[in-house]
Design a binder for these strands. Structure first.
Lengths: 261, 261
DNA sequence: CTATAGTATTTATACTAATAAATAGAATTA
DNA sequence: TAATTCTATTTATTAGTATAAATACTATAG
């Protein structure tokens, strides 16, 4: 035991380096990542198959498979069987990134107010960025989503459908804005709210007022966006978010009462 | 081949369901995740060892290992060898989540302006949330970071050190604010900027003016935070960010000229 | 000539068995 | 009692074999 891996008891001197053993599979993952960036590999490009990787890295099948699994979990490759199968490079899908970030937040579940606080910051900017970039097909989607909320819901299911459509409105805007990070955060927050709506607040009495306010804001937003008026879109979205935040606070209050009773 | 997995040529009707095969290892991962949430397992709790998992899921060692690798990559468990080794539940460390999100952004590298645009939104809120929560030790850290930037840098290394310290100031605030998502975004943006500073803009002429402005803002911020004046902190941070955004734009301009020459 | 069914190949997927490495804790020794 | 060595436990890695899935190619029927 020449180089102890943890803090030794009777040695005063510092650890020379981080001596922690790096697993073979992780070394391979790092090598592959380097290979990707150095050779400028793009989505769709193929990795060598398992046999070749075994030879390349002089390791066994199991180790290669662990490395590939790691890359797959990270969303960097997808793996198929059959001729022309194997691992191919992918751009990480949103769903993957979203799910991994949710793991991070698992033990500190963000509350409704926390989510809305962030949303109030982010959504107005998304609206402003989307304004000059929306295409005709985007407008069509937005309009159909608005139309979906026009008629009053007649039952629980329809109400849910409409709430989803409301949120989808924001996803469309996020997808159109050309700031990838902003878009990601926008979509992520919408996902979080969707979960809140569906799993926590589903059984509460309908909030006619809330739905109505949302619908109005969305209509006005659509108008501003059609006019390519980024500043007005931003301002409308800001008000929309403040309104939503307010309604959410009210809802949380009701929820609390409900809980105590 | 009864249920084709891809779009069939001569069938008009929709796919009934997603018939995609779910790998054994991924099934195990899902089972473990369910087990964790259903039984309210907490960080520090141990998973069954490999042998038990093999029995539990009636599968081979290799498959269990792939499942554990997946959980490890996601940052949900850490695995040790030896007695009392095995997989123990972890709260996903920030570094893990950060790295996974960077994978997502790999093919659409956010630009400086994009990052600063988000920062301008987020940092003022972080400052306001941190104001009432900072402890004496946090103030101590902030002050030592400010002190680090007081004396003018005499060489390249010192200049880098100071830039890092400047960014670290924001990380301290992010860590103290009690909105986990906001904190994550703040830290993440700081990491992105650190990379920009270190790898892209390192060799550019010093920006005396910029450093000086930052130092001043940080000093004023510290004052406002000590006074627990959230509103003033928010406003100062807003100005600070606008100033930084402005300097960054100038820098990008210089970089462009440099590139053309 | 076209569409369908069959088949052969490539590739991942899964399992078994055995050895190596790491480490916590017990036993041993000075 | 304090350092050291031993030992049991557990993961890490390897090798080899067999199975299953996906696809390209070929043959066949209409």
């Amino acid at each position: 035991m020449l180089i102890p891996s943890q803090a030794p008891k009777n040695m005063q001197q510092q650890d020379f380096e981080a001596p922690k053993r790096i697993k073979r599979a992780d070394q391979i993952v790092e090598s592959v990542k380097r290979w990707v960036v150095v050779n400028g590999k793009q989505p769709g490009d193929r990795l060598p198959n398992e046999r070749e990787l075994m030879e390349q890295f002089e390791c066994s099948k199991g180790t290669v498979r662990e490395a590939l699994k790691s890359l797959e979990v990270q969303g960097l490759v997808s793996i198929k069987t059959g001729p022309n199968g194997g691992a191919v490079l992918e751009r990480v899908p949103y769903e993957k990134a979203s799910q991994l970030l949710r793991n991070f937040l698992h033990f500190e579940q963000p509350t409704g107010p926390e989510i809305y606080a962030l949303r109030t910051l982010v959504e107005p900017e998304i609206a402003a960025l989307a304004a000059p970039r929306l295409q005709e097909e985007d407008f069509a989607r937005l309009e159909s989503l608005v139309a979906c909320c026009e008629t009053p819901a007649r039952n629980f299911d329809e109400r849910m459908q409409q709430r989803i459509a409301e949120l989808e409105f924001h996803v469309v805007l996020a997808e159109c804005c050309d700031n990838a990070m902003l878009a990601f955060i926008g979509r992520f927050l919408n996902d979080m709210i969707r979960d809140l709506v569906i799993f926590k607040k589903a059984q509460l009495p309908e909030q006619q007022e809330f739905s109505c306010a949302n619908l109005n804001y969305h209509k006005q937003l659509l108008e501003a966006l059609r006019a390519r008026d980024a500043e007005r879109a931003r301002q409308l979205m800001r008000e929309h978010m403040q309104s939503a935040e307010h309604f959410n606070r009210e809802l949380e209050g009701q929820l609390q009462k409900h809980f105590l009773a």
